[in-house]
């Protein structure tokens, strides 16, 4: 479903701020894979997701989604295949627009925007039903501005929007990191339910090793712009945090695992 081949990305090349964030990353996701991504701060996790989403072009390598080579497609064209939720709750929704307007925009992801109405009555009813699933009381606030919602509500809404049109690939970048623990758990719960229900191929970055172990069928760990660990199947099911730390030490030859991972 996702095929990333040997991608490189260097930011600010040729300046004092030059930073190589991806060093030949390759990753293949099968249909329905739910992959969790961990790694210390600055390991290149967000950069990998942004490369796939097309926020900027990669320096080298190819990316294809569902068999389509998207390497040269701009961000808005890749959106046809990809749903995203960002770390920053402000980023995924239009604050000055209403909840239903945001959803209507998301429902048209990947389609040409015409001069037909931006939202119809039938859609409203549908959105109300969808919002009920979140169980955050948003179904009664369809015409509220999104800017009035809490961070957790906005993330849950963004998640719903990302999956309103079933995406071929769902990208979640620490989407619960900015939330309080209780809200984070709720949003993560909704994530698990939606991913299972729609059988979505998902790449989820998390800063929480336990979450990374509990969720998904495969776990990758990034280190210095590359994938240092890739664990799936039975091995993933039996994984513990201690295992993970030990494996990380072996894979990278570094004993800074504890600090980097736990703090990162």
């Amino acid at each position: 479903m996702l095929d990333v081949k040997n991608i490189y990305k260097t930011f600010n090349p040729g300046t004092v701020n030059e930073k190589t964030a991806l060093r030949g990353v390759s990753l293949t996701l099968n249909d329905g894979d739910f992959v969790t991504v961990i790694g210390g701060n600055g390991a290149g996790k967000s950069t990998l997701l942004n490369a796939v989403a097309g926020v900027w072009p990669v320096d080298e390598g190819t990316i294809s989604v569902g068999g389509v080579d998207v390497t040269r497609l701009p961000e808005h064209k890749r959106a046809k295949y990809i749903g995203r939720v960002f770390q920053d709750p402000m980023m995924g929704t239009a604050a000055t627009m209403q909840i239903e307007e945001n959803m209507a925009l998301a429902a048209r992801r990947g389609r040409a925007r015409t001069l037909r109405p931006g939202i119809t009555r039938d859609e409203r009813d549908h959105y109300r039903e969808m919002l009920k699933i979140l169980d955050l009381g948003l179904e009664d606030r369809l015409t509220s501005k999104v800017g009035l919602l809490s961070g957790g509500q906005r993330q849950a809404l963004t998640l719903l929007m990302a999956t309103l049109q079933k995406p071929q690939l769902l990208l979640l970048d620490e989407h619960t990191a900015a939330l309080d623990p209780k809200t984070a758990a709720k949003v993560l719960d909704a994530t698990e339910r939606i991913v299972q229900k729609d059988h979505l191929t998902t790449l989820m970055i998390t800063h929480n090793m336990k979450d990374a172990i509990v969720h998904g069928n495969r776990l990758i760990m990034m280190y210095e712009g590359n994938i240092a660990l890739d664990i799936s199947g039975e091995e993933k099911k039996k994984l513990t945090v201690e295992d993970l730390l030990a494996k990380f030490g072996q894979a990278t030859g570094s004993d800074e695992a504890d600090d980097k991972l736990l703090l990162g």
Binding site: R84, A94, R113
Partner: peptide, 26 residues
């Protein structure tokens, strides 16, 4: 116009261009 799909896309662009692009808006 601002109630149509295209007009809404325009408003979304002004409100949050990141979100707009993520929703496939040019």
């Amino acid at each position: 116009f601002f109630g149509t799909e295209q007009g809404s896309a325009l408003r979304a662009t002004g409100s949050n261009s990141n979100m707009a692009r993520a929703q496939g808006i040019n």
